[in-house]
């Protein structure tokens, strides 16, 4: 504790202090790290699962598609936030990594859906037929002929997943189900809400973390528009 409860921004504390008298600026910087970690990890997990399931279902089709599609739909209709809450409540200690894992495992179905749709349209392209006539197997075709065409799309979905992961963590934290013993942008918002920062007008306790979440999400999406040129050789020149 470096200051008093909800001290407004000053020379010592650029963004003031929070309900425990902690420096908001310091918390913000540390919390960003936590949130980005959770976001990236959950994003990678969700995108990986979604891409594998989506591509396989879309490319192989028929029975495989039916089975994978049912699983996807099952995950879609069960509200993932409820699973998240139930899991978080039943776990004794909630480490960051565990939280990221849980978020990742519950948020892939939309990716799978989108990737499946893309794959089933891409598989009718002539270079896919050409690859078949070259004797390439399913995996080779999926990895070489289909995935590259979706890369920029998958990256976009990944960015949305990262943003979603950050928000999910914030959401859980605001309910008090966030990571134990650490500061994240979400826990900051959660404390601010709990200790009536909004009512007392201590804007510096909740606006900076909220704004930071928005800026991170925005920059990830902005990066995505530039990624097209990285993935598509046609746009590189």
């Amino acid at each position: 504790m470096v200051g008093l409860l909800y001290e407004p921004p000053s020379r010592e504390h650029i963004l003031g202090t929070d309900n425990f008298g902690r420096d908001v600026m310091v918390e913000l910087i540390y919390g960003m790290r936590t949130s980005i970690y959770v976001g990236l990890l959950s994003g990678i997990i969700a995108t990986a699962i979604g891409t594998i399931i989506g591509t396989t279902a879309g490319y192989i089709g028929k029975t495989v598609d039916n089975i994978l599609n049912s699983i996807t739909n099952l995950f879609l209709v069960v509200p993932s936030f409820v699973i998240l809450i139930l899991l978080s409540v039943s776990l004794k200690s909630r480490s960051l990594t565990l939280l990221a894992l849980i978020i990742g495992i519950t948020s892939w179905p939309w990716t799978a859906r989108a990737v499946r749709a893309q794959t089933s349209s891409l598989k009718t392209r002539e270079h896919v037929k050409m690859a078949k006539l070259n004797g390439e197997n399913y995996i080779e075709i999926m990895v070489k002929e289909i995935l590259p065409y979706m890369l920029s799309y998958i990256f976009m979905v990944f960015v949305l997943q990262v943003a979603g992961g950050i928000l999910a963590e914030a959401g859980l934290s605001m309910l008090g189900l966030g990571p134990s013993n650490t500061v994240s942008l979400g826990t900051m918002l959660s404390w601010a809400l709990l200790y009536e920062a909004v009512r007392t007008g201590a804007w510096w306790a909740f606006i900076p973390p909220a704004l930071t979440i928005a800026i991170i999400t925005f920059s990830l999406l902005y990066m995505n528009t530039g990624m097209d040129e990285v993935f598509n050789p046609r746009l590189r020149s």
Partner: peptide, 11 residues
């Protein structure tokens, strides 16, 4: 096939 452009993997 018909369309030489899509017969090649553009990557």
């Amino acid at each position: 096939f018909q369309d030489p452009f899509s017969s090649f993997n553009q990557f």
